[in-house]
Nucleic acid binder design. Structure first.
Length: 879
RNA sequence: GGGCGCAUAGCUCAGCUGGUUAGAGCACUUCGUUUACACCGAAGGGGUCCAGGGUUCGAAUCCUUGUGCGCCCACCA
């Protein structure tokens, strides 16, 4: 059974084999876990990565965190499901493929036609998806591949269609007009992130519509004023207060306009004249003002960027030409008050660089404010806000509650239709003025399907339940199958940058479809920046491919470096050095294991991990006690999402306690095997969620069953805190002695351990102090051996050999700290702080550096110390 | 313009609800090591916790103001 381990751990040789073993075991699938029927569930859906590109280390961090949570819960005996998938990322994917084709062939998607273009997209999707899945496995992700989903596969199509139809029937999905970013040159709408802003100088004109209109307005686009239906001023602006609510008929350069004066807080009274001409059809903000003030909408500009018919001489002109004409007219009439140069931002198309024309167009929306009977008369927005406000859903870190509710409160109806080809089709058909929404095309001739596709967030918003068999698993308000077993999920782990885009949608969609939250906790991770603190991006070429570093350091090292030293919601920096240091740690763990296993008889391998062997010495007690407190600290850190702290705790135990101290002692003392293997097995389990590969590999060298389904150490420690403190304090004597002897040897100041006889003694503290000082003096002047004899009861001390000789530190009874005096005056506070101050109050005079804080009162304890000391001496002899 | 975050050792960062002498990794200095590990060990140096003010017995931690970075949203007629 026992296998020899190599001198250095080689991740590359082992990782793929181990992953294969995990997959073959079937334990990634919760259905195969050997659990009691009432085992609690733990479900996490993987935020499906966009199939626009291969993964980068940011994704690796996400996978590391989620796999950590998932493996931790699997080890704790939860029915654990981590559900994989990818996202079709409609707009992003389409534009990437478009660019790619254009670069390779010079053709646009229009040249290819819809069908041929989509074929290209699918080719691309399949390639990238394969890469992504491969990368995901390389990280060691324990995802249930049997449930793999894609936001644009058949099951999801079914769910999306059903959702749309349901929402439409409920009256929450409706068709209406909205301003979109229109590129007159590409003849297409652009999403907000496809719009770029360019700084430019523009002319700001200040004028009145007509001589009989009381207020002058300022604009850089006089031609759009042909469609003005209001003038907005700030409600607090005293200059215009008297006009608010009035309506005027004006003749603006030959066009009749009806202008209402409205108040709106969006208006900046210090800009221009403080009055804004409202053009609802050609400006986003104006559109919103028109909505809230019920203003009529007049379209001035058409899809070609020309003035529409019905505007007299202006009709058919380009916007620029119309502008010149109007400016000339205004000047003629003496209405122009001012012309000035200002710097503003022009919105331009990211592709062709031409100016964006905001235009109203027919779109589909989800009404987030519509009250729904199925939600107890509340709207989706209200339900989402309620769920987070009363902490049915909690954010980690908590501060994102505010971002979320701020954003949610300002949410307008969600536009879900997109004028692109790649995506979910809308289940909508038109025939003249008729509209049909349903699962299939209506019978009868002449029906045309809607050509738009759905916003990608519509399908990913359904991710927690569309992946669990909704709608088939949901009949008459009752969940069945996977949906019943795994929904709501426990945690959504994702990047804070999509808190609003995605998380909010998921919450609303889940409330609509199931009437319940999609997840309990939302853990938000930060961004992995490059080593210079810059965001990784394709254009900058500073992204790091996990496949480039995993072969060098191993997936475990990559994972650990991403998990340690980073905190939720905060960005962190990528660094090779950090990965290297984690690689070194992993090798350390490897060698610790190698050492322990080499000395362990095989019959001990099967010993239980949940029952500690009986400790025989102080050192035994110390290591077991520390293991227990480490395990319980790790457990609670992991439960509280303090992943970095959990790893630090483990790191400290493994390296600084186990390797540096206990292993050294074990080299000299016999009968440590049982404890060593016990400790090793436990830390392998504890480490497993962080570094699954190496721990599984070590485990497999002496175990037949898989570590990934082993039992997490429970904190059954009955030791009280005081006992722990005592054991730790006592053990520090040993540590100090060993240190002292080591130092003495290396500095050749004192003959080795044999000559050091430290025996505890004393009764009169004052005397003690004096005699102690004498001793120190003499030691410093060259005494090479030390004998302190004792005749009695109480003392505590520590002996350290420093460069000048040996210093003996005493704990006497001289109370003198300022803190104590102050404490005595403040009795109340003293009571409050007693636990913390006890040590301080007992603090005593000491010589030299800080004393080791031991109070040994009883004789049998003294004897125990002496026994320990002589053991240590033996140990040192053997070193 | 609105919102959020960050500022702690030379560098990258931890430090939870305020509490012994502020920590880690890397880097640095000195010493050591053929037998678990040089992907190593021991010892050590290095910090006015951005600045001012406040609350408190006590502040890196809470409040306030300021400074310097970074991000998100709205992009302005």
């Amino acid at each position: 059974m026992k296998q020899e381990l190599d001198k250095t751990y080689n991740p590359q040789e082992n990782e793929d084999l181990i992953y294969q073993k995990w997959e073959e075991s079937g334990f990634f699938n919760p259905d195969n876990l050997d659990l009691p029927l009432d085992a609690p569930g733990y479900t996490v859906v993987l935020p499906p990565p966009n199939i626009t590109a291969k993964l980068h280390v940011g994704h690796s961090a996400m996978l590391a965190i989620e796999d950590l949570m998932v493996r931790f819960h699997r080890l704790m005996g939860y029915r654990t499901l981590w559900l994989p998938g990818t996202d079709h990322a409609a707009i992003a994917t389409q534009s990437i493929v478009e660019k790619k084709i254009f670069k390779e062939t010079g053709k646009t998607r229009h040249d290819l036609g819809k069908e041929a273009f989509l074929q290209e997209v699918w080719k691309f999707v399949n390639e990238t998806q394969a890469t992504i899945l491969h990368q995901t496995k390389k990280m060691g992700s324990s995802l249930d591949w049997s449930r793999l989903a894609f936001t644009l596969d058949e099951s999801r199509k079914k769910a999306v269609t059903r959702m749309f139809v349901d929402m439409y029937n409920e009256g929450i999905i409706y068709r209406g007009e909205r301003i979109v970013n229109w590129c007159p040159s590409c003849h297409s709408t652009l999403s907000d992130d496809e719009v770029e802003h360019k700084e430019q100088t523009a002319k700001l004109y200040t004028f009145k519509y007509s001589a009989d209109f009381p207020i002058a307005i300022s604009t850089t686009r006089p031609e759009t004023k042909l469609g003005d239906t209001a003038v907005a001023v700030n409600a607090k602006d005293k200059r215009y207060a008297e006009y608010i609510g009035q309506e005027y008929k004006v003749n603006f350069c030959g066009q009749e306009l009806n202008i209402k004066i409205i108040a709106d807080y969006n208006v900046d009274s210090s800009f221009g004249t403080g009055a804004l001409g409202v053009t609802p059809a050609h400006s986003m903000v104006d559109w919103q003002m028109a909505q809230s003030n019920n203003l009529p909408i007049i379209k001035v500009i058409n899809e070609d960027g020309l003035i529409r018919p019905g505007f007299g001489a202006y009709s058919g002109l380009k916007t620029g030409e119309a502008r010149e004409l109007i400016v000339a007219r205004l000047k003629e009439q003496g209405l122009m008050e001012k012309e000035e140069d200002i710097i503003n931002n022009l919105s331009v198309c990211y592709r062709c660089d031409s100016a964006i024309e905001p235009l109203p167009s027919k779109q589909w929306f989800i009404g987030v404010d519509k009250k729904l009977e199925r939600l107890g008369g509340k709207s989706l927005k209200e339900k989402a806000l309620e769920a987070t406000a009363q902490r049915d859903i909690t954010f980690i870190p908590e501060r994102f509650n505010k971002s979320f509710s701020d954003w949610m409160n300002n949410l307008h109806d969600w536009c879900i239709s997109r004028q692109i080809w790649f995506g979910h089709a809308l289940p909508v058909w038109y025939r003249g003025e008729e509209t049909h929404v349903g699962f299939e095309a209506p019978s009868g001739d002449g029906w045309q399907p809607d050509e738009d596709t759905l916003d990608t967030w519509f399908s990913s918003g359904m991710w927690t339940f569309s992946t669990l068999g909704w709608p088939d698993n949901f009949k008459d308000g009752v969940k069945s199958g996977d949906l019943a077993r795994f929904h709501p999920t426990q945690v959504l782990e994702t990047g804070y940058e999509i808190l609003t885009l995605w998380v909010s949608r998921m919450i609303m969609m889940s409330f609509f479809a199931l009437g319940e939250i999609p997840f309990k906790d939302v853990y938000l991770h930060g961004i992995i920046l490059d080593k210079n603190g810059k965001k990784m991006s394709k254009s900058k070429g500073n992204g790091v491919d996990p496949l480039a570093i995993i072969p060098v350091y191993g997936a475990d090292a990559v994972r650990l470096s991403l998990l340690m030293g980073s905190t939720p919601g905060n960005d962190s920096r990528y660094s090779d050095e950090k990965i290297e240091s984690k690689r070194n740690f992993i090798n350390k763990l490897w060698n610790i294991s190698r050492f322990i296993l080499s000395g362990t008889p095989e019959e001990l391998f099967t010993a239980p991990t949940d029952k500690a062997p009986v400790p025989k010495t102080l050192a035994d007690k110390w290591i077991i006690d520390n293991l227990q407190s480490c395990a319980s600290a790790v457990t609670s850190h992991l439960k509280n999402y303090n992943f970095s702290l959990a790893a630090e705790e483990l790191n400290d135990f493994t390296w600084n306690k186990l390797a540096d101290w206990y292993l050294e002692i074990a080299k000299a003392e016999k009968d440590k095997e049982e404890i060593l293997i016990y400790v090793l097995k436990n830390i392998l389990v504890l480490w497993h969620p962080f570094i699954p590969f190496v721990t599984e590999k070590i485990w497999s060298s002496f175990n037949n069953d898989l570590l990934m389904v082993a039992k997490w150490p429970t904190s059954t420690s009955v030791d009280t805190k005081t006992d722990s403190d005592k054991i730790n304090n006592d053990f520090r004597i040993i540590q100090d002695l060993i240190t002292a002897i080591r130092n003495a040897r290396s500095e050749n100041k004192v003959e080795p351990a044999l000559k050091l006889e430290a025996i505890i003694y004393g009764h009169n503290q004052v005397e003690l102090l004096e005699s102690q000082r004498d001793m120190i003096t003499s030691l410093k002047t060259g005494l090479k051996s030390l004998t302190i004899s004792t005749d009695g009861a109480k003392i505590a001390d520590a002996i350290t050999i420093v460069s000048g000789g040996i210093e003996v530190y005493l704990l006497g009874g001289v109370d003198k700290t300022k803190e104590k005096e102050r404490m005595q005056k403040e009795e109340l506070n003293l009571v409050k702080l007693i636990g913390l101050q006890e040590a301080k109050l007992n603090n005593t005079e000491f010589v030299g550096r800080a004393p080791v804080n031991i109070v040994a009162a009883e004789k049998d304890k003294l004897a125990a110390y002496q026994a320990e000391l002589s053991k240590i001496k033996k140990i040192m002899e053997n070193l």
